Amino acid sequence: MNTRTKLALAAAVMSTALAGCATTGGGYYGGQPEQYPSQERDVNRTQRGALIGAAVGAVAGLLSGDDATERRQRALVGAGVGGLAGGAIGNYQDRQERALRERMQGTGVEVVRQGDNITLNMPSNITFGFDESRLQPQFYPVLDNVAATLNEYSQTIVEVAGHTDSQGTDQYNQALSERRAATVAGYLSGKGVMHDRMITIGAGESRPIASNDTEAGRAANRRVEITLVPLRS
C-alpha cells in the first residue's frame, strides 16, 4: 500500500472517529458548548485527540500530506536532486534506517519504520525543557548525528513535526509545537541539511500517542517527530 493510499485510509478513519465523538450525552458538542461544563469539554477534547492520533498513526508520523510533499519534491528536482524508483527506494531506506538505528542507540530517540517512511520520535525530556522551545545543549550531539545521516542520505524529504500534551489552551499548544519544529529544522539547516528538503508543521495537542491523563503519558506526547520520505523519480 503506497503513502497516498495510506493517507486516504487514515483520513477516512479520522472522519469516522470525529463523527462518532461529535455527540455526547444526546447533545451536539461544539454547536452549543455552553450546555457542557468545562471538565466535560476537556474530557471530550482528550478523547477526540486520542482518536485522531490513532487515525494518523497509520502513516508513520507524516502529517503534512501529499500536496506539501509534492511541492518539496518539485523543488528538489528543480535543484538537481535525483529521485529514486522501484526497488531502489526500499534498499535506500533500509540502509538509512540501519545508519539511524546505530547512531540513535542509547540516545532515547525511537526509530520507527513503516513502509518506505522512517520516523524519529524525539521526546521533549531529551530535546526541550518544560514549556520551552530552546534545544537542550546535551541534545546537540544527537541532532548532529541526525544531520550527518540526512546529509549522507540526501534523497529524502524531511518533515519535522512538533507535538504537545493537552495542558494549556489549544492556541498556546499549537504555537509551542510550531516553535519546537522550527527550532529543530533550523538546527538541522545549520548543519548543512538543505532547506528545500524540509517541511515544518505544528500538530499541537491533536496527535497524542499516549493518554494525557497521566504524567508519563503527557511526557510521551510532548515530542518532535522527524519523518523521512523517499524522493521518487
Results as ranks from 00 to 15, higher is better:
L51I: 02
N125G: 11
R74Y: 10
Q47W: 04
G30S: 04
G83F: 02
A8R: 08
T24D: 11
L18D: 07
A17W: 10
D170R: 10
Q73Y: 00
G217W: 00
E34H: 14
Q114S: 14
R101H: 04
G106M: 01
A10P: 14
F139Q: 10
T119P: 02
I157T: 00
G186W: 08
G162Q: 02
V142L: 04
K6G: 05
R41Y: 09
I209K: 02
I226R: 02
R134C: 01
L150Q: 04
M194F: 14
R72S: 08
G25I: 02
D116Q: 13
V184Q: 07
Y140K: 10
I52H: 12
V13Q: 14
A181K: 03
E225N: 08
S64V: 12
A99H: 05
Q114C: 08
R207M: 09
D42C: 03
A203F: 02
R113Q: 07
S133D: 15
A68C: 04
A148Y: 02
A11P: 12
V77L: 07
Y28G: 12
N44R: 06
T127Q: 10
Q73K: 14
N91Q: 14
V43Y: 12
P137G: 13
R74G: 15
V142M: 03
N117K: 05
D42M: 03
G31K: 03
A79N: 14
A50I: 12
V224E: 06
G80C: 02
T3G: 01
G162R: 05
N2F: 04
M1S: 11
N151F: 06
T164M: 11
Y29C: 07
A55R: 03
G61P: 10
T3A: 08
E159N: 01
G53A: 00
P230A: 11
E132Q: 15
T149I: 12
M14I: 07
R207Q: 10
S124C: 10
M104D: 08
P123F: 02
M104E: 04
R45F: 12
A185T: 01
D196Q: 08
I89C: 01
R4K: 10
A85M: 05
G90N: 08
G20C: 04
M14F: 12
V112M: 03
A88G: 11
M198A: 06
I118W: 08
N2S: 12
M104I: 03
A85L: 08
G20V: 06
Q47Y: 13
S206T: 15
F128C: 07
G57M: 00
M1H: 14
A148L: 11
S15A: 14
M104K: 07
D144V: 04
P230W: 13
T183I: 01
Y187G: 11
D116Y: 07
F139C: 11
R103P: 03
G30K: 01
R222I: 05
A182E: 13
R48P: 15
A60W: 15
Q138R: 15
Q171I: 07
N173S: 09
G25H: 08
G78E: 00
G204K: 01
S177R: 08
R98V: 11
T107M: 06
Y140T: 09
P137L: 12
R207G: 02
A19V: 13
I89V: 15
V158H: 06
T119G: 03
N117L: 07
T164G: 04
R113G: 09
N145Q: 15
P33W: 01
